[in-house]
Amino acid sequence: MSIQLQAITQQFHGQSVLDNLNLTIEPKKIYGLLGRNGAGKSTLLNIISDRLFPTSGTATLDGETLHDNDHTLGRLYLMSEVNMYNDRSRLKRLLNSTALFYGAFDRDYATQLAAKFDLNLNQRFGKLSTGYRTIFKLIVALCVPADYIFLDEPVLGLDANHRELFYQALIDSYTERPRTFVISTHLIEEIANLIEHVFILDQHQIIVNGSVSDILDRAYMITGPDTDVTGYTAGLNVIGQDHLGGITANYVYGALEDDRPIPDTVTIERLDLQKLFVNLTNAKEATTHVN
């Protein structure tokens, strides 16, 4: 019971976008897929949903291929940044066709959400602003009967109130009917506590793959005078540094040395997900720091 990606490699014009990537997405979990611009998040999601063909590798759902397979493709839904709907189509009609193709659709909830977001379903898709396009696609994503929902930039163009509404609707819908959500976003702080498991995509690879609490358990910020911090973190997996006057902050990803005495002048704090992400994916730091 899962989506499995095996040895996915994607190249565009000889340029590697994804390189021998392996991934398992389990049922009924909320995932975060994080990566910098151009890291290949959308490409990865497009491969899973059979919109693009990988150069090599396979994607399966419960052991069955996701390529050219109505049965498996109908069990997932990718809400993408690219607009897949015809500009001239009215929203009502798009909901109808979604219901027709997916076989079931929570129309009541869709109507309810549209009212909450102030979205008039008699409009044509092309007439919507970026924010409302996102809202419409989100409504569809929350109402399709799929088991795996992928949300690529789900809050693009949404103001703070609408973002709040969306996160609430997401949790409501998830509690009502637990299923997998994979959320790809740049607003890490907003989803940091929402996601159970995180994938970080960098340098064509998944460099972090684990439960958020496990990962944050291994991420530290060690602050204090320059020499003390450097001494204490010697040999540890330092992924980044900040300096302010004589004070240094070293970011460590990985276990600390338990038997090493902690100098009085040094404080150890945990990193949050965003800070960890920024340090792990800083171009100059590269992937050598990840284990």
């Binding site: 949903s49 059979d50 919109r51 050219d68 397979n69 109505d70 493709l73 109908g74 069990r75 997932l76 839904y77 990718l78 993408s80 897949m84 709907y85 015809n86 066709s97 979604t98 193709f101 997916y102 799929a146």
Partner: peptide, 16 residues
């Protein structure tokens, strides 16, 4: 292409 986009969005394969 337009219908391809709509259908792949709705989990319908190319073959179908």
């Amino acid at each position: 292409y337009d219908n391809f986009k709509l259908l792949i969005q709705n989990g319908i394969s190319r073959k179908t």
